[in-house]
Design a protein around this nucleic acid. Structure first.
Length: 108
DNA sequence: GGTATGACAATGA
DNA sequence: GTCATTGCCATAC
């Protein structure tokens, strides 16, 4: 149902819908939007959403559970945010990633 | 309108 | 199991 929204808006919506303490992967969002191979584009949208404060991009990590965009948050800002939500982060990687994984294609 | 880039993902060796 | 290469979509120049 994201066909009416632009790719960026659609991604923003999904990211904002991520529950606190949960994380998802770029591919999951892309797949939910129908852009299975457009995972890179999701990261691109995140870059644009970085200017916004309503988009918890810190809950979006790659399929490996690594905080790829941590560098874009300005240091360990991303890791601290995740830890505050109850997510353990070790070496820029989420501990029990599958445990905190939130798939929009299933939850939504 | 074509080329280059991007916070990825999947496959092959 | 890890490393390297290719593919995908959309945006930016």
């Amino acid at each position: 149902m994201a066909t009416h929204l632009n790719s960026f808006d659609a991604i923003y919506q999904v990211v904002q819908l991520i529950p606190q303490g949960k994380v998802t992967s770029y591919g999951a969002i892309a797949a939910y939007l129908g852009m299975k191979g457009g995972a890179r584009m999701v990261g691109w949208a995140m870059n644009a959403s970085h200017t916004l404060e309503n988009v918890p991009a810190h809950r979006v990590v790659n399929r490996n559970g690594i905080l790829t965009g941590k560098n874009f948050f300005g240091g360990n800002r991303m890791q601290e945010l995740l830890e505050e939500e109850g997510i353990q982060v070790k070496e820029d990687k989420i501990v029990g990633f599958q445990q905190h994984f939130w798939d929009p294609s299933i939850e939504l």
